[in-house]
Design a protein around this nucleic acid. Structure first.
Lengths: 216, 216
DNA sequence: ACAACTGTCTGTACGACGTACAGAAAGGTA
DNA sequence: TACCTTTCTGTACGTCGTACAGACAGTTGT
């Protein structure tokens, strides 16, 4: 039979590239085909439909996180989790267009399973029971993906994102423009709320979550 | 000038209805127009474009959460937060098609601001500083929206969702079908991971987050 | 060496989408 | 009664996902 011009990986990388440079609206079966210099329907040789393409992109991006950060001595369980989450967050923000895809895809691919196993191990090392470790693993994943998605929602979704300082400044400006007369606490909290999209906020809430998970 | 046939609220409700009964794919400017027995472009009298329509739906759904659950005596701060979050989660799962919209919309409408103010107050009552209260508020919102989005991602997105027991059973089946030979901890945790989409898991992780936030 | 087979890719086509643009319809105001 | 402004209709364009049919090119069996 006639050999393929590309392999699956190439197709997915081209698609991810389109997502990075053009944002969510730039990803279409036809744009991928055009980027490969091929007819639109040739793409269906590699993916069964657009949802399948999106799932493959999501899995690809997830796989870019530094899974090895989860390895290490049991006593370092907390550092292992924090390092992994920060690395994953970095990867997600480097591919903002892909983040929404991660939130609609079933996370049971091989990469997702490996991440789950690593987190479970770290929590076991922290002394949690297996069920509590499982619950804590989910809480951390929710936090990681949720905060990335909310961060990205305020951007055009193209890579690279504006530097964090600019995104924080834009948020402050938006809050300053909002009618906060009836919301005194909110008004007082604007400087902090402006930093919600920052890595510092992410570290803080991840830290509090870990505090709560391992008990007082 | 010629009077409008509808008001903004009606249009948004019709759109939300389409989303509820048909899932994310059923919401289009044209389908809204058809449901109103009107030509496609008439919809643009009420919204400026599709993104605007989606933002209005998101704000509408957010407004259905029981904001008054955040009122109460300072000593009850924790119960207030938990009740509000559970009510909000319920609303979100009643409108699964709208959840993805909430994750791409800037959350600075009046409803979002009121929710923020209420959460800030509850955390102040818990003894947190204003900046810490702001950070904790964000952590809780991330958790609420993130877990709803991941829950919904495993469903067709139409209302009503299958009962929780069925969704949990489906997850268990999916995990049982996955190749878990290399992931012993994951394999052992399957019964717990199957319940990730449950209200119980939500309460657990919210509880741990609150534990961590108010300190040991 | 040649024919048959089988996956890969091309070409064409369809219905649905968001929305731009021009004009008709209808009610308020002069 | 004549105008004016806003609402809504009608038509149109380009883009999308993808179904279907067939051309093409290696592989396999003889």
């Amino acid at each position: 039979m006639r050999p393929r011009q590309f392999d699956d990986q190439q197709v997915i990388d081209v698609a991810l590239g389109l997502l990075d440079t053009g944002g969510p609206g730039a990803l279409s079966v036809r744009s991928v085909a055009a980027a490969l210099n091929v007819n639109p329907n040739a793409v269906y040789t590699y993916v069964s439909d657009k949802a399948d393409l999106e799932a493959a992109i999501a899995e690809r991006v997830l796989g870019m996180a530094d899974l090895s950060a989860l390895d290490g001595p049991p006593s370092r369980w907390r550092q292992r989790i924090e390092r992994f989450c920060l690395s994953a967050r970095e990867v997600l923000l480097e591919h903002p267009g892909a983040v929404p895809l991660l939130m609609r895809v079933p996370l049971q691919g091989p990469v997702a399973l490996a991440i789950g196993e690593g987190l479970l191990q770290a929590y076991r090392d922290a002394g949690l029971s297996n069920p509590d470790a499982a619950r804590a693993t989910y809480a951390v994943i929710v936090h990681l993906l949720g905060s990335a998605a909310l961060d990205v929602a305020e951007t055009p979704g193209t890579a690279p994102l504006e530097p964090e300082t600019q995104r924080v400044a834009a948020r402050r400006a938006a809050f300053d423009a909002a009618p906060l007369d009836d919301f005194p606490l909110t008004a007082a909290a604007v400087p902090t709320m402006a930093t919600w999209v920052s890595q510092k906020q992410f570290r803080w809430s991840l830290g509090r979550l870990l505090d709560g998970v391992v008990g007082s």
